[in-house]
Design a protein around this nucleic acid. Structure first.
Length: 583
DNA sequence: GCCGTTTTCGGCCCGACTGTTTTCAGTCG
């Protein structure tokens, strides 16, 4: 039983308990446990089998949950879940996912109306049967109806970060045009750089909140007003995404920005920390709990808010209640990598295979973006769909690269060095698509797995391990193969790959393509722990594709990576030394 | 269900908005 499966089970238990009206803190304990387990890369069985370790050492796991973990690992089942599932009909889960319906309302609906599907509820609303129930009215009924329609549309899922970013830029620009607005910042999961964004949070400083609200509502992209109050307004904007806006005064801006950035778990932890210090934090500021009558002691900036509870300012990308509090307390926060640290890009394609731009165009675009070196890594021959390169065509490309480098250098002062690379395919039967002899002449070799993704964990791990151990392989490309919202990762024992990469000095890639972004943050954090080095690469198939580097940077920051963890922050001379050392 | 240099029992973050209530519960973030 994998960690992900266990996490899912705990989350499911939490849903069921919540529906049954169980103690909210008990529900939270299961949710916390689910999150915790999800964040652990090594299999839980490893912890169980280690005599020096115990589940009880995990923060949030007590006697009961430790026992349940054992049961799950031993039997693959949880008797408690079986019991709960018998008590709660399946349709409840669909109902709970409708915005505006929580456990209480769902329970009442289930008790009063015979419901076996979401369609049944839709019909009941249309017939006016829902508005007759106690606590429901005409307004609630029509809200439910439109929310069901919204939930049914598969287009309305979470947006990729860069898709959300485009909308963020639009709405921020619009709000800045409002005269009543002093300051605008985006917050939420967009600011934390999450892979996907469910809604957009915008914070505004103003003395005239109602004018600010009207301005948002009047936006050409506003499809629907969900709520509109004195300090808070929510609308549905482009692509159905919900945009929440809060308006505060200057003295509360930092506190509100912190609150609105989240994550929820980070905020809960922060506020309970404040409480222990005799302080209370809300979105208006930090106040004293004692007899001073709630005197505000901080709130204008995030920095002073964190300082008030004895912490260094924590970068948004780390605010997930993982280890950031421990780091901030001990002045051990990582100095997170920034886009300005990047000197090169070590994974991109050209028209020689499935890229849209020529070698020269990619080089020119890279110079324009301030890069000092790039590696051209087209596909190898196994990737027939992309017209992958065989030995002959690869050598031809390398000759062209030599010539390009010469002409770049002859222009006086070489702005860019192009490395001779290849994205060599990791074959289904094991081994690589090109010989060691050929690979030994490359400057940079990315080894990636594209075929046989349905194989067993043993097979896939074995194939990747062979590649990691090959001295001519510089880096493993997109190490899990997942496509966000489209395709899950292939089955691979990543901890095993990480350990081998650390031992052999092979880099692991953080693929900056917003659909990929693997290694993800938790796996990258585990790899950093093992002292693995990373390459953050765009895998660009066009000149525009080079611009996704910032998405990769965000993922790296979420993993707590620093410039020194990432090889393409190095000057070329040092990078070459590193590659030579492996051969 | 977890947790403890103020606690092994009694806490567990805090506030806005809506609809339907006639003072607030439910939901959301």
């Amino acid at each position: 039983m994998t960690n992900a499966e266990i996490a899912l089970i705990f989350d499911h238990v939490a849903d069921l308990l919540e529906y049954q009206g169980s103690n909210v803190f008990r529900v939270r304990a299961y949710r916390n446990a689910s999150r915790l387990v999800q964040g652990i890369v090594e299999p839980l069985a490893t912890i169980r089998d280690d005599p020096d370790r115990s589940f009880l050492d995990l923060d949030g796991i007590g006697k009961d949950l430790a026992k349940k973990l054992e049961t799950l690992l031993d039997s693959g089942q949880l008797p408690m879940l079986k019991q709960l599932e018998e008590e709660v009909p399946q349709v409840v889960f669909d109902l709970m996912r409708v915005p505006g319906l929580g456990p209480k309302k769902v329970k009442l609906l289930m008790a009063e109306i015979e419901l076996e599907s979401l369609d049944d509820l839709e019909k009941a609303c249309q017939d006016g049967r829902v508005s007759l129930l106690k606590g429901f009215g005409k307004k609630t009924e029509s809200t439910i109806l439109s929310n069901i329609a919204f939930a049914k549309n598969p287009e309305n899922s979470r947006l990729l970060w860069n898709e959300a970013d485009q909308i963020v830029q639009l709405v921020v620009k619009w709000m800045k045009e409002c005269k009543a607005v002093q300051q605008v910042e985006a917050a939420g999961s967009w600011r934390r750089g999450k892979e996907t964004v469910g809604d957009i949070d915008i914070l505004v400083e103003s003395h005239q909140p109602s004018e600010v609200m009207s301005h948002l509502v009047a936006w050409e992209h506003t499809d629907q007003v969900i709520v509109q109050g004195d300090t808070k307004t929510s609308i549905r904007g482009p692509r159905g995404i919900q945009i929440d806006m809060r308006v505060v005064a200057k003295e509360s801006f930092g506190a509100a920005w912190q609150y609105f950035t989240g994550s929820k778990e980070h905020n809960v932890r922060l506020r309970s920390r404040a409480k222990k210090l005799g302080l209370s934090i809300n979105e208006y500021g930090v106040s004293q709990l004692d007899q001073s009558g709630g005197k505000i002691v901080a709130g204008q900036s995030e920095k002073e808010l964190y300082k008030a509870v004895g912490l260094e300012w924590i970068p948004p990308e780390l605010r997930e209640n993982h280890r950031e509090f421990e780091f901030a307390e001990n002045h051990q926060l990582p100095k997170l990598i920034t886009i300005d640290d990047i000197c090169g890009d070590l994974h991109m394609h050209t028209t020689a295979t499935d890229g849209e731009a020529t070698l020269l165009e990619m080089a020119t675009a890279s110079i324009a973006r301030g890069l000092r070196y790039i590696a051209i890594t087209d596909h190898s021959k196994r990737v027939t769909m992309a017209r992958g390169l065989d030995d002959t065509r690869l050598y031809e490309q390398w000759e062209a690269i030599d010539q390009l480098n010469q002409s770049l250098a002859s222009d006086g002062g070489s702005p860019l060095v192009v490395l001779k690379g290849i994205e060599v395919d990791i074959l289904e039967k094991g081994g690589l698509d090109l010989s060691d002899e050929v690979l030994s002449h490359a400057d940079w070799v990315v080894a990636s797995l594209h075929y046989g993704q349905q194989q067993s964990q043993e097979q896939i791990t074995g194939r990747l391990l062979d590649a990691v151990c090959n001295p001519y392989v510089s880096c493993i490309g997109h190490p899990t193969g997942r496509l966000i919202n489209r395709r899950p990762a292939y089955k691979v024992d990543l901890q095993c790959i990480i350990n081998a990469a650390a031992e052999h000095g092979t880099c692991l890639e953080i693929n900056a393509n917003p659909w990929r972004l693997d290694l993800d943050d938790r796996c990258a954090a585990a790899a950093k722990e093992a002292e693995v080095k990373f390459a953050i690469s765009t895998d660009a198939h066009s000149t525009i594709g080079l611009d996704v580097m910032r998405c990769g940077i965000l993922q790296a920051r979420r993993a707590g990576l620093e410039a020194r963890d990432v090889v393409n922050t190095m000057p070329l001379s040092k990078l070459k030394e590193l590659i030579q050392k492996r051969h």
